[in-house]
Write a protein that binds this DNA or RNA. Structure first.
Length: 678
DNA sequence: CTGTTGAAATTTTTT
DNA sequence: ATTTCAACAG
């Protein structure tokens, strides 16, 4: 008599569609899973079912969008599998496409000519390298402005990920850069050469080389032999290159399961394409499609409103979602006076919900762009409300953190031109030109930091130069533990922070933080790799899992909120120009993506949903001190029936709007007022 | 050659 | 508000 459950007992918790998906056989399977329909539960049960049928865990590949999602899914699968009395899931291959690519390339890379140890550049490093090549090629010429490094990188990345020709990419996505086509070609050639020479891969290369592995006859077979089952989460947000990789793993799609929702595709800017999910049945003719439509997340009034919002999109796979829940409050549409007023209103509601027993961590404020929350952050700090922000600038993207890591990376690889060109100009008397020469010396000699020992620095750098070289040579051949190494870098670097940056105190604290977490990593190389593939989103993330009773509000970009849910959700800055972003209204496809983004934001809410938009925006330092905004175009008049409307007063109280007596959105009112300051 | 200053341009979402 | 570039002084 055992205490273990049977797989049927576990599956009994699923509805019939979920169960059908979880127990589907070997042929390709597409699960179309609307928001809140238990997609993760289904996927996790499918893993358990596969293992229960005797599939070897080490032959299962689970591809997710973030490392966090992979960890969460494997954790839940582990629980199920343990209940079945099976060994567990720790041998399952789980992670992002990029992390898995990394593992495969370490193992098989040499079969396609990859150097045995290569380093990986994050987006910022790649841009910096692009910049190095750009100045080598003298593209910063005078007659007209060449695209910025970030733009160059975006164009390059689009070509690689969407597998589109430069000309096509420029015409359709970067029309203002078409005149630079020839120079961009040269730049990209130079960039690729440079990466090859330095033994460096960027994010896109990880996918590109994985795909190359699969096309190579020998390596391809070796990789294909590894897996019996491949499960892919968030399939609507994969790009053409990623779809090609799946196809390369098995062209018949044997053992392939993909899960996604075309209504939640929000990464087209990163070359993701809904076509992957829409064309799945075409690419895999014997595919089965299972659709999940029962929503377990949101109350009925919220679900109705969100169905209406996405209902306005012209083309779509999924049908409307339904729920067994009937009770619940209608979502609120709040017209605020201005940004400050919006913050006041939200804080007041947040505190009310907390009083009523909804912990801060069950509430979230969502916004389109990272900077939309700046004022709110200040107000939250004043009100002593702890919060945790996701998305936007990451910890490792802060200049001082990048500086410190550059020391470690240069020690790891003296030919790392990006790190060198970052560090050397920190020293007095050394600018871009000398930095280039110095790095050139290291690259050609290939003999560690030897060439730097005899170099005669300019007077300004005379005293610091020998310390600098000693630090690096010491780090390069040290067997000290990592925290000790970071400590030495910190001792050397801290005085430079004070001369280079403002806000010195918090920066120095970050460096201490970095020293403390260094002990977590097995080796220096490991630490650098982990930080590029899975950058922590904030210092709090670095500090480790928060204490249990430590309650904090979540602030997040809508993109980073994907796949998550909260009891109360506040969507702020739902004004045209922000949602949709002015930057993304060039063509109908972009606008549709913004609509889906808005839909993703709304569908995060379980019980309470607030959509706020300030009426007025202030522009500091401009003669016309403010401008007026319109409600987002994704909530046209007919949809207002599904919301309770209100305006706010100065202390964050709301006043219900009786549409019969006063309609703020009446075209005539708007037309009359617009003329006053137009 | 470096470092400072000012003017001009650009301004999102992220593995 | 931040990034990039030109001009100019040491």
């Amino acid at each position: 008599m055992s205490d273990f459950a049977t797989i049927d007992e576990l599956l009994a918790g699923l509805n019939s569609q979920q169960r059908e998906a979880a127990t589907h056989g070997e042929s390709p399977l597409l699960i179309v899973a609307g928001a809140g329909t238990g997609k993760t539960a289904t996927l996790v049960h499918r893993v358990a079912w596969l293992l229960a049928r005797g599939v070897d865990p080490s032959r299962v590949l689970l591809l997710t969008f973030t490392r966090r999602a992979a960890a969460e899914m494997l954790r839940r699968a582990e629980t199920l599998v343990r209940r079945l009395g099976l060994p567990g899931t720790n041998r399952v291959w789980g992670g992002t496409y990029h992390a898995i690519a990394m593992r495969l390339l370490h193992r098989f890379g040499k079969m396609i000519g990859l150097p045995p140890q290569f380093t990986v550049h994050d987006r910022g490093d790649s841009e910096d390298l692009m910049n190095v090549v750009r100045s080598d090629l003298n593209l910063a010429k005078t007659d007209k402005r060449f695209p910025k490094k970030g733009t160059c990188m975006a164009i390059y990345s689009r070509c690689v990920n969407a597998r589109e020709k430069l000309e096509h990419v420029l015409r359709h996505h970067f029309p203002w850069c078409t005149e630079w086509q020839e120079d961009l070609k040269k730049l990209f050639d130079g960039y690729t050469d440079r990466k090859e020479a330095d033994g460096v891969l960027d994010y896109d290369d990880l996918l590109l080389y994985w795909s190359a592995l699969l096309t190579d006859p020998k390596a391809g077979d070796a990789v294909r032999k590894l897996f019996d089952c491949v499960l892919v989460d968030e399939y609507q947000d994969t790009n053409t290159l990623q779809a090609e990789i799946l196809y390369g793993l098995s062209s018949e799609g044997k053992g392939l399961t993909v899960v996604g929702d075309d209504a939640q595709s929000i990464y087209a800017f990163r070359a993701a394409t809904v076509r992957n999910i829409l064309d799945f049945p075409k690419h895999y003719p014997n595919a089965t499609i299972v659709t999940l439509e029962q929503n377990y997340r949101s109350s009925q009034p919220i679900l109705q409103a969100t169905n209406e919002v996405i209902g306005l999109t012209p083309e779509r796979f999924t049908k409307n979602l339904w729920s067994q829940r009937t009770e619940g409050e209608r979502p609120k549409l709040v017209n605020c006076e201005d940004d400050t007023d919006q913050a006041t209103y939200i804080i007041r509601r947040i505190l009310e919900h907390r009083e009523a027993g909804v912990a801060l961590r069950r509430q979230a404020v969502l916004f389109r762009a990272s900077h939309h929350s700046i004022l709110l952050e200040a107000e939250l700090a004043r009100a002593n409300i702890p919060f945790h922000k996701y998305g936007g600038l990451k910890f490792v993207e802060a200049a001082h953190v990048k500086d410190l890591l550059a020391f470690l990376r240069l020690a790891e690889n003296p030919r790392d031109v990006v790190s060198g060109s970052r560090l050397l100009p920190l020293l007095p008397g050394i600018g871009p030109t000398r930095a280039r020469q110095l790095m050139e010396m290291l690259v050609t000699s290939g003999n560690g930091f030897e060439p730097w020992v005899g170099w005669r620095p300019p007077a300004a750098a005379a005293s610091i130069w020998s310390d600098f070289v000693r630090l690096l040579t010491g780090l390069a051949r040290t067997d000290e533990d990592l925290p000790a190494q970071v400590n030495r870098v910190r001792k050397f670097y801290a005085p430079l922070v004070e001369t280079k940056y403002d806000q010195v105190e918090p920066r120095l604290r970050d460096l201490e933080q970095l020293e403390m977490i260094a002990s977590r990593y097995g080796s220096r190389a490991r630490m650098l790799l982990e930080l590029t593939l899975d950058p922590p989103s904030s210092t709090q993330d670095l500090a480790g899992p928060p204490v249990l009773d430590d309650d904090y509000l979540v602030l997040s970009t809508i993109h980073s909120a994907k796949g998550l849910e909260w009891d109360a959700v506040y969507v702020i800055h739902a004004a045209d120009g922000n949602i949709p972003s002015d930057m993304a209204t060039r063509n109908p496809e972009e606008i549709e993506e913004e609509r889906r983004l808005f839909y993703v934001a709304l569908t995060r809410a379980k019980n309470w949903l607030y959509v706020c938009y300030p009426l007025r925006y202030y522009w500091p330092g401009r003669s016309d001190r403010h401008s007026y905004s319109q409600r987002t175009r994704f909530l046209p008049a007919p949809l207002l029936d599904w919301f309770d409307q209100c305006v706010t007063d100065r202390i964050g109280e709301d006043i219900s709007l009786d549409e019969a007596t006063f309609d703020l959105d009446s075209p005539s009112v708007r037309r009359r007022t617009k003329d006053l300051w137009g």
